[in-house]
Simulated scan of single mutants.
Amino acid sequence: MDHLLHLDRTLDELDPPRWDPPSADATHLVRTVHALRRVRLGELGPADLRMLVAQRVALPHVLPLAVRLLLEEPLLDSCFYEGDLLLTVLGSPASAWLPLPDLSAQLRAAITTLPEAAVADLPRGAAEELARFTGRTEPLR
């Protein structure tokens, strides 16, 4: 199943119900996430995807977009540091991956090809998170 068929549609269209506008006293994060739900999927950038995944918004639609970027560049720096999108995606609940077994397998394969030096440069705990996702008993080094 191609999870990228709806790049011309928004999360408000694909993930009902449409969200009401945020309240006047909403935080910047809440206002931003609400606004991102009205952006066409094909126009979402890496930082947008990182934010939506981190907030666990419409993961069946957002994870495939993030994985597509990660397959091209696993340690993509979306906003804060090299690998931030990858580590955010790996923090998604296991249930989010159940309808996406092919994408999960592709991402696991990409992770296992990461150079040791690149993994060593990631934040503390990243190697363990990578190992958990790939099903290894030892952290990637």
Rank of each mutant, 00 (worst) to 15 (best):
A118H: 13
M51W: 03
I111H: 03
R18D: 08
A24R: 10
D12L: 03
D2P: 14
R136S: 12
L107G: 10
A126G: 08
H3Y: 13
L52Q: 04
A58K: 04
S104N: 10
D12P: 02
F80P: 00
R141M: 01
M1N: 11
E138S: 12
R38D: 10
V39F: 06
A131Y: 07
H34V: 02
A127T: 12
D48L: 04
P99I: 07
E43C: 12
A58P: 04
W19E: 14
V67T: 11
A117Q: 13
E73L: 08
L65S: 06
L41I: 11
T10D: 07
A24T: 09
P93Y: 06
R108A: 15
T113N: 08
R9Q: 15
Y81K: 00
S78F: 03
L69R: 14
L63A: 11
G45N: 05
A117V: 10
S95V: 11
L14V: 06
S95F: 05
E13D: 12
R124D: 13
D102R: 13
C79V: 07
A105C: 08
R40P: 11
L130Y: 06
P74F: 12
E138V: 08
Q55F: 01
L63Q: 06
D15F: 10
L122V: 11
G135E: 07
A131W: 11
M51R: 14
H28C: 01
H61C: 05
